[in-house]
Design a protein around this nucleic acid. Structure first.
Lengths: 349, 349
DNA sequence: CCACGACGGGAGAGCGCTCTCCCGTCCCGT
DNA sequence: ACGGGACGGGAGAGCGCTCTCCCGTCGTGG
């Protein structure tokens, strides 16, 4: 156990600044934190002393008494997976992650709060995470879960820890979250296909164990029922590009006359486009394709993908706001905020 | 300023556990941290008391005395950019980010160290970051910089803060880093094209203000010179897909006979492939394409991209190891570790 | 002219932990 | 049988900060 860092000299403390400024520790603290009124004259003296000594407040000491760490956990909860598997890469691939971080930072940074990155990929880790929070290492949690039936929301809720989810929880867990109006988003896609004159519309759905997958499929069914086609074809995919490719082939082999398809996410849509190209189907002439998410896959594919955009940055920013409010007052009611989606028209439909 | 969290009861402390176990605070600390020998009998009693009280050590208090936070900053340093610009999305897009995080975690997690995510997108933020470190909020820095002439490496180095870079610094800054043998990697690509019988080989280079861009172009020139073609054509791109697309068109308009091209990164290569497809050139029959990185773009493009793979996970893991060593002993010499690349043969060459 | 409140500043008690000292006990070797 | 060292445990200081409490000094109103 190292006692003290060799080579690194002792940093100036409040005490040092106080001595140098000829005031008490308390006064320096007041100036530094801007609490209460301090004589402008003294304020100046203290500020000079701070600058001169190069004082920077020690976070741990402050945390110890305020019980605030000014950092929150940014947790990605994913299914258990072998170490060498590219799953994790997939999780973070796509701009999704960046958009989340970007949105969070617009709110967190001005408040001086830092996100601590955590990957919850096993139940052991999930438990450890809850311990970490109880340890007061972090004030709260922003949780993005893509694990089927993730126990984490319930764990957090039970522990009474401030937390906000991206997307509604799988079960009836009392916890704050942000989400999009999934069905309305799907409507956008379906109505667009219909307005294009497509009459044989099908869907490539997401996995049934994800809320988004389920909601989007249900939305699709409802929307199609509204057009008198309650039995529109659907093939389930797994939200990956390869899955989309395979699903497209399956779909066409079962329903070769399909002329419009709603794909539950862009990555699968990209795969579907690849498959269509190889099968010699022209997009959008022979078959129109609409994706969901407006991820980077949408602009990486050819033709450019028409898709339903979710305002991820705004959602992330709202998550941060909800979380900070919850941290300020943990007795606060849980809340959920639902965002609207928009249709981004490109070439594929 | 909130005094104490309402609703949340006081957590058990060492003192509580000690009382409950009938031993001293020091003994409980020893058991919890596994330092020194403690009578197995007492150990058991203490452990039971810990479990019974639900004790979890308070991180801040521990940090205050050990001066270790057990968290490191994971900094992405990027050029300044307008708030609404998708730049950030681009930064984090692609699996690159995930591979870095994955690699880091394999080393950090077993040691109980957490990465704190930071985005350094302006000089103000960079300065703030250095302050944060001096504040002891984090023990060290893992820096991934894609900002041209980034001042951060120098700042960190001057401040004597433990830091490790991904990729060598732009200037002659004394700082630890991991990198790949860029030239050897480029050799792999060029030799492959040559072995395929290509005789009119060109390159789409990266920006000149990035070390990787420069190194790869220099490597290309050298390799081609080795084949008696010191003046092989090159067009500069900006590492984006659109840039690659444009560069490919430029290249073909200037050198229509090109039958092999080395592209300095996969994203540009993906763009190049798109352009070639639109221009009616068959890949690899008419023109062979080799990329660099083996990013997700390599498998998202058609035909699948032959590329030079950098072992990002291994590099990230090594960064973590270097950093932890540096944190343990800051007086340690700076070190750099260079990794080998491998050629991943797919369809495009 | 005095009482009173507002205000600016200081003193000091901890926050919860680690770690150095120190002390008692036991097991050696001589 | 005795001295010395190894070992296990306790006492207590102190990490650097915030915040409550208290006290002195004003300005103000009766």
């Amino acid at each position: 156990m190292t006692t003290s860092r060799p080579g690194r000299p002792r940093l100036p403390t409040l005490e040092d600044v106080a001595r140098s400024a000829g005031v008490s520790r308390a006064t320096v603290s007041r100036v530094v934190n801007g609490t209460r009124n301090v004589d402008p004259e003294i304020q100046k003296v203290v500020q000079e002393a701070v600058a001169q000594t190069g004082y920077v407040p020690n976070r741990a000491a402050r945390t110890l008494v305020t019980r605030r760490t000014d950092s929150v956990a940014l947790v990605f909860s994913v299914p258990e997976h072998p170490a060498d598997d590219p799953f994790m890469a997939r999780v973070f691939s796509d701009a999704f992650f960046g958009r989340i971080v970007g949105g969070l930072l617009t709110v967190l940074r001005p408040r001086g709060v830092h996100p601590v990155l955590m990957l919850a990929d096993s139940d052991a880790v999930r438990q450890e995470l809850v311990d970490n929070l109880r340890q007061q290492h972090m004030d709260g949690v922003v949780l993005v879960s893509i694990a089927p039936d993730d126990p984490l929301p319930a764990l957090l809720s039970e522990a009474g820890l401030p937390a906000v989810l991206f997307g509604r929880p799988t079960g009836p867990v009392p916890i704050s979250f942000v989400d999009i109006a999934q069905r309305t988003g799907v409507d956008l896609a379906v109505e667009h296909l219909v307005s294009l004159g497509r009459t044989a519309i099908a869907t490539i759905a997401g996995p049934h164990d994800s809320p988004a997958g389920r909601d989007r499929l249900a939305g699709f069914r409802d929307a199609m029922a509204g057009h008198g086609q309650a039995d529109a074809p659907s093939v389930a995919g797994d939200f990956t590009q390869e899955g989309g490719e395979a699903a497209m082939r399956t779909l066409l082999s079962q329903h070769p006359d399909t002329d419009g398809v709603f794909v539950a996410n862009d990555l699968m849509a990209q795969g579907a486009l690849l498959a269509l190209n190889e099968l010699g189907r022209r997009v959008p002439e022979d078959i129109a394709v609409v994706g969901f998410d407006d991820s980077s896959a949408a602009t990486a594919s050819r033709p450019l993908l028409t898709t339903v955009r979710q305002p991820v940055e705004d959602m992330a920013a709202e998550m941060a706001r909800l979380l900070l409010a919850l941290i300020d007052d943990p007795s606060q009611q849980i809340r959920s905020v639902i965002f609207k989606t928009t249709l981004v028209r490109r070439r594929s439909a």
